[in-house]
């Protein structure tokens, strides 16, 4: 059979099995893996191992060598015992889908997943990945609970569903692959990709001679906070990182009293997506400068303010703005 066709048949089969498996498992928030969900098959390496066993058996038969027979049987038994070990390396793990983190389009969205071991059992090298995404390996040895962030490329703004999580393991000998698919009950919002450009007209800047407010900004160093995806890399506390203390970002505050509105109508020459991207850019800029900003887009008005949660509200509004074909060009 030609290789391409083999591959196609294989892919088809794989898809069919997956769909069947997913139909059996509803969308979940938390789940303990058991024999109802764990699938196990010899891996490619496992099939090669079987071929090796056949060669060894042939050696035993043709040379009438009982020690070669013995070694063959020992390795065959090992093969069989490994089934149980591979299965045991998944069964009993409880998976909890914790939360998704915001990100900008074009970045990777992080979803937090927690794995916990059952009782005193130990698990090694469990690989987790979204359908599209890099695999990451988790061990549950001395620690019976692990939280991991799984990244998924976020190409478009809007709601990003975590979708199907593949949990697999080849441990201990790579001869078998035990795996399961879980339809994760997790989603996050992907903000529009900020694209620089345009200017803000002064007319939309208002000066209020009110009390001085403290806003996150970049003028005065305020302290350190845990680095999160999307933070400016310029704020990373590299000295801390070099000392092995993890990735932190310096947070700054500004003292100012101006505010400004970001409006849908600023750049009529742009299409919807470009407009959203530019608005996102300016929202971030103003946030950085410490200028309180508000947002006016069709159907939504957000009062000027500053701060992380305000920023997220603005960006979320931009992210969830209906796409061009449904809303129509203004």
């Amino acid at each position: 059979m030609p290789k391409g066709m083999m591959r196609r048949v294989e892919n088809r089969l794989r898809k069919a099995v997956k769909h069947w498996a997913l139909r059996r498992s509803p969308r979940v928030h938390q789940l303990t893996l058991s024999q109802k969900r764990i699938y196990i098959m010899p891996s490619v390496a496992g099939f090669m191992f079987v071929a090796l066993l056949l060669v060894l058996l042939l050696l035993g038969i043709n040379y009438q060598n009982n020690l070669a027979y013995g070694a063959t049987f020992l390795l065959s038994s090992l093969f069989v015992v490994t089934i149980i070990h591979t299965y045991a390396n998944l069964s009993g793990i409880t998976i909890t889908f914790l939360k998704g983190h915001h990100c900008f389009a074009g970045e990777a969205a992080a979803f937090e997943v927690q794995l916990s071991a059952s009782g005193q059992r130990q698990y090694e090298n469990i690989q987790l990945r979204w359908e599209q995404g890099e695999p990451i390996a988790v061990d549950l040895l001395e620690k019976h609970e692990q939280r991991v962030s799984l990244y998924m490329p976020a190409e478009h703004r809007g709601v990003l569903k975590a979708g199907v999580l593949l949990i697999e393991t080849f441990y201990p000998l790579g001869l078998f692959r035990a795996w399961t698919w879980l339809d994760a009950d997790l989603s996050t919002i992907v903000f529009p990709k900020p694209i620089a450009g345009g200017r803000l007209s002064d007319a939309d800047s208002h000066s209020d001679n009110g009390a001085e407010a403290v806003h996150p900004g970049r003028e005065d160093f305020d302290g350190l906070e845990q680095y999160q995806k999307g933070m400016s890399p310029r704020h990373i506390a590299w000295k801390h990182y070099a000392r092995g203390l993890g990735l932190h970002a310096k947070s700054y505050v500004d003292y100012s009293a101006e505010h400004c509105w970001l409006s849908w109508h600023f750049w009529p020459e742009l299409n919807t997506e470009a407009r959203l991207s530019r608005l996102a850019y300016w929202a971030l800029q103003l946030e950085k400068q410490g200028t309180p900003y508000g947002l006016i887009i069709p159907g939504i008005e957000i009062k000027p303010a500053l701060g992380e949660s305000h920023r997220n509200r603005v960006l979320e509004a931009l992210a969830l703005f209906p796409a061009a074909n449904s809303a129509g060009e203004p």
Binding site: L58, N62, F73
Partner: peptide, 28 residues
Amino acid sequence: ILYLQALPMMLILFIMFPRLPPLWTVDL
């Protein structure tokens, strides 16, 4: 641990598995 667990089954196989005549003659 894996080998210890595999050992009993290996013994059973060793005792039970029929010994076949050589499939072709080999140069020893």
